[in-house]
Amino acid sequence: MAISSNGMPTKTQIAAVINKIIQRQDKPITLGGIQKELFGTYKVKPEMLAEILAGQVRIKAVYQWPDLRNRKRFWIYDLEMYAQRLVLEILSKQALTRTELQNTLKRQLFGCPLKRVIELRKKILTRFLRQKRLFMHPPVSHQKLARFGVGLPALAPYFKKVKEEFNTVCQKLAKAGIPQNEILLAVKEVFNLIPSGPSVDMETNIDSTDTAATISGPVCKAILEKIVEIEPAAKQQVLVSIPALRTALDFSKMLFDRAILRLAEQEKVFLHRHVYPFQMTDAERLNLVADEHGNYYMGIVLRSSM
């Protein structure tokens, strides 16, 4: 490394060493902390250090974090970007309420003031919900507050009361000699769930069910047919890429994702996960299918029994 004419390192060289020190930290570091790690001729006066760091912050080589006990702190990650990644990581493990998320964030943001954590939580949650990178999970039975997760909520818990009620009705009607399949037919009639005939209009069906998130047989059938169309060898268990399948079908994200998960639950397909989804760009990840456990699926394989 070249040295300036008086034998002392130049400002650029000191800045490079400072950046290396900051890069090696696993949390934001104070000016004093940096000063301690500087050695030999790289040790500079605090004013000079502050000046160099201000320059590095200006060119975004490092980022300034909120002060801790009136001490300036610096890190390689920008606070907001780091918080965004943290939110996804936290919620990929478990869906949480706003307050639970906020408290977890507070604990993991290295002494960031509560006011700033609240601002970040609001901003990130709103943005991610809009981008469908996060999903709201309405409260289930005894819960009072909505939760937020990286995947769509599991639907079964929402039908717990309905199921209990349905079982009661079934028991009552069984006494009158009405079999369960008759009751199920009646339920379909009551809720208008019987398809209008073999010539179901796929698009209408999809649009009308999109928000209700009811995955009809024709949607799943269309997906299975498209898999074979894209990859004729799919019947021999060759993997089809989920992003390619999504592009070929042009369904809404929510409908497509639910249908894919439903097909797996029905044991009609195997799904293959992406091991490192958080190494992908947001746009790439959005093309995968996420479940409520934080898994991201990138490939689909027809089961041999198909």
Binding site: Q236, Q237, V238, L239, F270, H272
Partner: peptide
Amino acid sequence: NESTLNPLT
């Protein structure tokens, strides 16, 4: 020839 190693049933 291609084949997948699928998640376990």
